[in-house]
Design a protein around this nucleic acid. Structure first.
Lengths: 223, 223
DNA sequence: ACAAAAGTGTTTTTAATACACCCATGG
DNA sequence: CCATGGGTGTATTAAAAACACTTTTGT
């Protein structure tokens, strides 16, 4: 079970497919499937997703939690390992007929406990945008600061100031200018500088919100 | 599979039991067992743990991650859902013969991938001590600030200043004085005031390390 | 009185948000 | 030349770390 998220048309959306069979026929569910004996859960979810989207487009995949209530699926208990997947906003992967993107804030009738899984994915993304470099997984290879602001705003659900976003990410060394610029729109304006993320692969940049270790002293000893 | 942690004698320790049978006989492993059809994974781990410790002593239990590498256990793949459990430092639960507490920084020869699970548990605890009220799960019902400092220091692995700890937790409304005091030790000193945590049950107190929503404006609208 | 531990008041540091203003381009 | 975004510089705010100093006890 994976909640694959992407910022599309200014809103955070999730990839759902419509069930054909009972139980919960015609309701929308997260892509997933059974685990094989020769793969771990992450390999499995990547294999399942390969049927829906080009998995090379997935910029980030991580575990969320196990959902295991005995009655979560009617007729025999199924344990689901839930994942979060992220796709950069510049790609529009081909998806099969029976799948569609839905805004996470306006979900259709969902199957089983899949709405809870989407909420979990959304919460995880929100949190990690604050203390990791996970923005790289939402953004295209090159972007303007205001485009990045749009991505963060959509994912976080509140307006982010472009100037502060740039400074926070720059201070952490996550952003670097490409040297290129983007031409202004039809109504004019100064051309925007293009940036890229300095690294791919998730990195925790702000591990201790508080109770940070003392700055003086070697820091190796305890107590 | 659960890493049950407790601060014992100034160090963060984990409860391990020594395997009698092959594979990995005589190596130390985390308590756990098979999931039944009528329970979810948390109910299951609590049932498994009941065989080792009085589960009423567990102040907090949470999921860590699924460990599912096909070869993690020799002879047939076993998927493990790993948990973190916390026991307040004032209780010394009875444990069976074949189990023992070990400092997480000085583990014995461990079975399977259990060392990785302990590392994960340690990391999770460290992180959550910073941005949640999880300290309540390590502390006794009443404690002095310096006792609490000892707990945080042991769990975090670096020295925490008592005065700053008190101020951080107080500002967040997590601490309240009980009105009682603790008598000083044999060498004298001012008697220490006793405190308690205001709430039990985990609470996130510092959700946005950075990129916090704008303080002005209602905060409900996007972009 | 003095040592020891607890607790308070104050300063310093850090890192974010807020805001005013300057810049570059298209019409 | 002015409207429209982009970008920079500076002030403000917030919260934690660091440290000096006072308080309360036992011996």
């Amino acid at each position: 079970m994976a909640a694959v998220l992407q910022v599309r048309r200014e809103s955070l959306q999730v990839l759902l497919w419509q069930r054909a069979q009972e139980p919960h026929a015609r309701r929308w569910s997260l892509p997933g499937g059974r685990l094989r004996d020769d793969e771990d859960v992450e390999a499995s979810i990547r294999r399942q997703l390969a049927e829906k989207v080009d998995v090379r487009k997935l910029a980030h995949v991580e575990q969320l939690a196990v959902f295991s209530a005995p009655d979560r699926v009617p007729g025999g208990r199924i344990v689901a390992s839930a994942f979060l997947g992220l796709i950069p906003c510049d790609v529009d992967p081909e998806v099969p007929e029976d799948t569609a993107w839905y805004p996470v804030d306006n979900l259709p009738d969902t199957a089983f406990d899949h709405e809870a899984i989407v909420r979990r994915a959304q919460g995880r993304l929100r949190a990690k945008l604050s203390y990791t470099n996970l923005g790289f997984a939402l953004a295209p290879p090159e972007f303007t600061i205001s485009a990045l602001r749009g991505l963060y705003s959509a994912a976080l659900g509140y307006r982010v100031a472009a100037t502060n976003l740039q400074r926070v990410l720059s201070r952490r060394g996550l952003l670097e200018p490409t040297g290129h610029t983007s031409p202004p729109g039809p109504s004019g304006g100064r051309p925007a500088a293009l940036f890229r993320f300095t690294g791919h692969g998730m990195l925790v940049t702000d591990p201790f919100a508080v109770l940070r270790p003392p700055s003086k002293g070697s820091g190796v000893d305890v107590r």
